[in-house]
Simulated assay, not measured.
Amino acid sequence: MPLFSVVIPTYNRASLLEQTLASVFAQTLTDHEVLVVDDGSTDGTSALLARYGDRIRVFRQDNAGQGVARNLGIREARGDYVAFLDSDDLWPPWTLATFQQVIREQGAPTVVMGRARAFQSPGELSDLEPVPFIARSFADYLASADATFVRTACAVAVRTEALRRVGGFSAKRISAEDYDLLYRLGIEPGFVYVESPVTLGYRQHAESSSRDFDRGYEGTLFLLEQERRGSYPGGAARRRERLAMLLFGLRHVTHWMLEHGRSRQALALYARGLRFHRVVPRWRYLLGFPPWVLAASLRSRR
Rank of each mutant, 00 (worst) to 15 (best):
R301N: 01
Q265T: 00
R115V: 08
A176P: 00
S208V: 02
R165A: 15
F59D: 00
R159L: 13
A153S: 14
D38A: 00
A295M: 13
D54L: 02
R211K: 15
V37H: 04
L17Y: 02
D146R: 14
A296H: 13
L48W: 13
M1T: 07
Q106S: 14
E76F: 06
Y232W: 14
T220I: 07
R57Q: 13
I74E: 01
P122Y: 01
D62G: 03
Y217Q: 09
S121A: 10
L85S: 03
L286W: 11
T254P: 01
G261S: 06
I103G: 01
L90M: 08
E195K: 05
A206H: 08
L298G: 02
I134R: 15
A116F: 11
I8P: 01
R238S: 09
F84Y: 09
A97E: 11
G53L: 08
A26K: 11
L247R: 08
A266K: 11
P189Q: 05
D180S: 08
S297M: 11
D80T: 14
A244S: 13
V293P: 04
D80Y: 10
L182Y: 02
A296I: 03
R117N: 05
G167W: 12
V158C: 06
F289I: 09
T220E: 11
V37G: 03
A296G: 12
R70P: 00
L3K: 12
V6T: 07
L294I: 12
E105Q: 15
Y193G: 04
G288F: 10
L250H: 04
Q101V: 05
E105N: 11
G65V: 05
L35N: 03
L224F: 12
G288W: 13
R301H: 09
D140R: 04
A147C: 10
I134P: 00
Y179G: 01
L250F: 10
T10A: 04
E129S: 10
A47Y: 00
R159G: 13
E33R: 11
G107I: 07
V156G: 03
Q106H: 15
D31R: 05
A153Q: 07
Q120R: 14
A162R: 15
R284D: 15
F276G: 00
E188I: 04
T199N: 04
V194Y: 04
M113Y: 12
E218Q: 15
R251N: 08
R57C: 02
P2N: 07
M257H: 12
Y11W: 15
G44H: 02
